[in-house]
Nucleic acid binder design. Sequence first.
RNA 1: GCACCCGUAGCUCAGGGGAUAGAGCAGUGGAUUUCUAAUCCAUUGGUCGCAGGUUCAAAUCCUGCCGGGUGCGCCA
Length: 586
Amino acid sequence: MESPITSSNYPPSISTNSPLTIRDELKSRLKKALVKSSFPEEIADISSATVAKFGDYQSHVAMVLAKRLGENPRTIARQILAHLHVSDMSAPPDVAGAGFLNFRILDQYLADRITQVTQDSRMGVPLASPRKRIVVDFSSPNVAKPMHVGHIRSTVLGDALVRIARFLGHDVITDNHIGDWGTQFGKVIYGWKHFLDPDDLAREPVEELVRLYRKTNQLGNEDPAIARQAREELVLLQRGDPENLVIWKQTVELSWKAFESVYKILDVHFTHCLGESFYNQSLSPLVEHLLATEVAQPSEGAICIFFPEIPELADKPCMIRKSDGGFLYATTDLATLEYRIKTWNPDTIWYVTGAPQALHFQQIFAIARRLGISAELVHIAFGNILREDRKMMKTREGENVSLATLLNEAIERAAKILTEKNPSLPLEEQEKIAHAIGIGAVKYAEFSQHRLTDYVFSWDKMLSFQGNTAPYLQNAYVRIRSIFRKSDEIPKLSSVHLDLPEERALALRLLQFGETVPIVLEEFRPNLLANYLFELANSFHSFYEKCPVLRAEEGVRESRLTLCNLSARVLAEGLSLLGIQVPERM
RNA sequence: GCACCCGUAGCUCAGGGGAUAGAGCAGUGGAUUUCUAAUCCAUUGGUCGCAGGUUCAAAUCCUGCCGGGUGCGCCA
């Protein structure tokens, strides 16, 4: 949903030159002071104050220096202070505790900054430098299997990282590496040939494919002859048998339609979808090449790559061709890597896949280095989704909650609450809002925790609309929009007053948007942005309770409208970086 | 056996060298003639798994142990 605020003619002039953030400005002043005091400037360090009573920002440099030089930290702090010029932005900094430098930003400086950031289309978020070309590998569902809750982490996390990287100015290529080739197809094809139900296939194609796979698998466990026949179907497919190819192609198309509907609900898009089958022809030459260059070696009939020089991998070889001639996951990944490097020449490749695959990527990356690939390769891992008994949700056996079902239930639950709270909404708008709230809640549930934390799946938690959830943030936005609907005046760009503590706290928080977005990519942690947005919404709700806007006297009203406007823009932009939409009312 | 991840409030989780460890939920007590109460304000609740070590400073780094999880040549 487009925000009328962000697309309106207010503010009148928009620049794209984001100013330095307050933190960076302080840091740069601190560096100058360090140089003048004959200290190394690299150790300059500014962080948000841990406790409000210590001010807004703090530095630990004096203590770090003291340790290095074996001197008294407070003495060093005073030395630095003598050369530190911040009187235009901060109250005189004091030396506190063991040698902290505490900064309390001047209200006037905050007010001027708000005016400045209001005119900035990037709302104070600096562009990344250098700009990188990044290939992101995420989502990667498997053909002939339904997308289940386990796929949500890769899809939603990857999408957010992509959005953030693009917002920061990087050149991002997304590639959905679909599992459209593998041993499961022997069983699917056998099932297709022997007990396909065309009606079921037409009605619920993916479920029917799963049934075919499961039935063959089960029969194969009981009867070795059937297992052998399924393997033969696979071999036929791999040799290019026309009939099996046609069946395979249909399963891919049917599955892709199901994926597409999920991606549409999630508003996730890819620039490329080169599945595993795309690399079929590359696998054999790749292995031959690795053999010829002695990167790989024959071993017990198979072809393996060994890592004697890496202690952790010394006893963990990577197999790239089975003794029966078949290729593996690692082979495809190497071919894929080679293709991506050759085709796109990226600076870095991000693999957004589960933590259990850490060893696999350690091997792939080690091989890449041996092949002279210099691009930075990153495995962006995430924890498992657990059942409420804390057991892992497995892809293979056991029922998985279907992703489409989950998403639809989220939307339905949101619709129900919406009907109770705001029954007067037109049906069509209600549907859109329920979508934004339900899907937002599911996505936000992912972002509100560290990506490596195992996730305990719970309908109630994932679809909770209270507290630290997407609806809380959306509600802050909706309250602002409501104000602007009732105000017939176009807010003029006026001087900002920060007289009440709630106004000041909100202003400071707004200015920290530019400090937050870039650090998300330092360790690939959208939860830092989610955290920031929650705190922003929190500051806004407090401001909203304490500071009447439309009823305020002239001057104060315009100032508060400016704060409201910027709050709405930051909330909408921040949430959109997480792939979450904001409704106009709820 | 080897490797990786995790252990923080009753529950779910933030914080990953810096000051008195935070939030949401749950609990308790308040706030609505007022711009959307999906809100706000106040409050109860802690041996940061255990033991050593490094440091001016450790939930955070190192070592060991305990507990849980995951992965490790013929799946992806």
